[in-house]
Amino acid sequence: MRRVLLTASVAMLVTACSPAPAPAPTPPAAKPAPVTTPAAEAPAPVEAETAAPIVETWELPGDLNPLTTQAQLEARFGKTNLREETFNGAEGMGTYPVLVAFPDDPAKRLELMLDADNKDAPIQELRVTNAESLWHDATGLRPGMSLAELVALNGAPVSFYGLAWDYGGTVQDWHGGKLANAVGNPLFRRVTLTARTGADDNALPQGDATFRSDDPKWASAGKDMVVGELGISWPHDGED
Rank of each mutant, 00 (worst) to 15 (best):
T7F: 08
K79N: 03
L99F: 02
G169H: 08
T129I: 04
D215H: 01
L112Y: 06
G238E: 13
V171T: 09
P45T: 07
G144A: 10
A52L: 05
G155K: 06
F77C: 06
P32A: 14
L5G: 04
V227L: 02
K223R: 12
A90L: 11
V171F: 09
H236E: 10
A40V: 13
A209Y: 04
A22N: 07
T50N: 02
Q72S: 14
K223E: 15
A180I: 04
P106D: 02
M1A: 08
T36L: 09
G144C: 10
V4C: 02
Q172N: 11
T95A: 12
K79G: 01
V4K: 04
V98Y: 04
F211E: 00
T192I: 06
D224N: 15
P25R: 12
P103R: 01
R142F: 00
L60T: 05
A180L: 04
G184E: 13
L110C: 10
A164S: 11
T68M: 05
R76M: 10
V171Y: 10
N130K: 09
K217V: 07
V98S: 12
L179W: 14
A40G: 07
D120G: 11
G94Y: 02
A44M: 13
P34A: 13
I123H: 06
W58P: 00
A180H: 10
L99A: 03
Q124K: 15
P216D: 08
A199I: 05
A180Q: 14
E149K: 11
E41M: 10
L193C: 08
D117N: 15
F102H: 15
D115M: 08
E84G: 07
V171A: 09
W218C: 05
A51C: 01
L6R: 12
A11N: 09
A221T: 05
T95H: 05
L73C: 11
P122R: 07
T69L: 05
A29M: 12
V151F: 03
P25Y: 11
A131Y: 01
W234R: 14
P216Q: 02
V55I: 04
T80H: 06
L67Q: 12
P21I: 04
N185I: 02
V46S: 13
P106H: 02
D237T: 13
A42H: 04
P32L: 13
K223F: 01
C17K: 12
P122Q: 06
A148K: 14
A16F: 15
G228I: 06
D214H: 02
G228D: 07
L134D: 03
W58C: 03
P28E: 12
R189L: 15
T194D: 07
P43L: 06
T210R: 08
T68P: 05
F160Y: 15
S159C: 03
D201P: 01
G92H: 09
K31N: 14
I123M: 12
S146R: 13
A11D: 12
V46H: 10
D104Q: 08
N81I: 01
M113W: 08
E56W: 00
A8F: 08
T192H: 07
Q124H: 09
V191R: 13
W218A: 04
A29Y: 06
M1K: 05
F87T: 00
F102D: 08
T50G: 00
K119P: 02
E229T: 03
E239Q: 15
